[in-house]
Design a protein around this nucleic acid. Structure first.
Lengths: 194, 194
DNA sequence: TTGTTTTCTTGATAAATGTCAATGAAAAAA
DNA sequence: TTTTTTCATTGACATTTATCAAGAAAACAA
């Protein structure tokens, strides 16, 4: 089945966008491919392009004192750019790198700006999209307050098998907020309790 | 100056809402007062009322195994309800309690639903409002990945003096994700380095 | 004010987590 | 395939943080 049709269906079903609007919306996008290891975005980049992943996955991270800290993972239907700085119209504060080959929908900010005037339901759609994003981010924020690293790991195993299966453990550890060595020991502990 | 005028100004200036829309928007709200210690929301409550703080402050927390975990603080112009579960139309998963006397704008979900059909710019406004919320939450989430408890505390001191000055330390500690004893020691360390 | 409760601090100790170094396993490249 | 590089595990040890218990300080109520 067509990859774009698939996304159109997602817009319509999940984000309640009327099909005519979805067509108009999608008409502004280009298909762009990345190979595993390519950068979708680098720190300091202009960050004025909306990038929606149709297939593949990516990892977002920042570099502080030469060390990478993994802050995000992106999968199908996710928006893979520096969301916060995009909203603020700032340049990117992070890197995004393809974990595997990727096919994206991409559109410049100017074009989305134009669309927002053409499509009646644009803000409604942005809102719903946002909603998805917000719920995800807020859950994770609370997880950091409420749960131990071990519990956060088990959460990922339970609810985000896509992350677990596609991501090297040291990146997982960083995302959870612990050292790779410690994650290794937690895993052993989980596998052989007591 | 009038407290509602003040908020109208905020809607107009910060959230780019046209004044006519702001008037219509505000017409749906009631003013509600709480005293220090009152609950704005309890776990299991219906959670179908939008509550916007005009003056005062509140704390959000969950109770797990009899222990309170502070997850949110709310101040002027903040939306003080269980945002995530509100969006999902679920009942509240958290408590919100007044830290001091509060004056709120409040409106039922049914009314906001109605407004969303009446006001052309409603979703645009929701989007902008959301944006503020999202940026805040995402920054905090990343802070948990990138920064140590000590740094998180110093961040609060630097950027959220309102939280520091109005909130007991043990609640702060919970929000940061550490024990009250440890926060006490970090503070001593900061005051008397070395 | 005085007493009462809540919050903050401190000490001792235990548990969790980080760091560094070495080894082995797995994946990627040639 | 073989070689090379990256990643995961393990051990020893250091640091951070939690827990429990006690007392001091601060906030609150009578």
């Amino acid at each position: 089945m067509d990859i774009i049709e698939n996304y159109k269906n997602y817009l319509n079903k999940k984000l309640c966008m009327p099909l005519e609007d979805a067509d108009l919306f999608l008409s502004g996008f280009d298909l762009v491919n990345y190979k595993k290891g390519d950068y979708l975005l680098k720190q300091g980049d202009k960050n004025n392009i909306v990038k929606i992943i149709l297939s593949g996955s990516a990892r977002g991270f920042v570099i502080i004192d030469g060390n990478e800290f993994t802050t995000n993972f992106y999968f199908e239907n996710d928006h893979a750019y520096d969301y916060v700085n995009y909203l603020n119209k700032h340049s990117s504060g992070m890197y995004i790198k393809a974990l595997e080959n990727i096919t994206n929908l991409e559109m410049s900010f100017e074009a989305t700006d134009f669309l927002s005037q053409e499509i009646i339901g644009y803000y409604k759609m942005s809102f719903y999209l946002f909603k998805e994003n917000f719920i995800k981010v807020e859950k994770e924020r609370k997880n950091h307050i409420l749960k131990s690293p071990k519990e956060r790991y088990l959460d990922l195993v339970k609810n985000h098998q896509n992350i677990i299966s596609k991501v090297p453990q040291y990146q997982l550890a960083s995302f959870i907020g612990i050292s790779p060595e410690h994650l290794s020991r937690l895993r052993r502990e989980i596998a052989h309790p007591k």
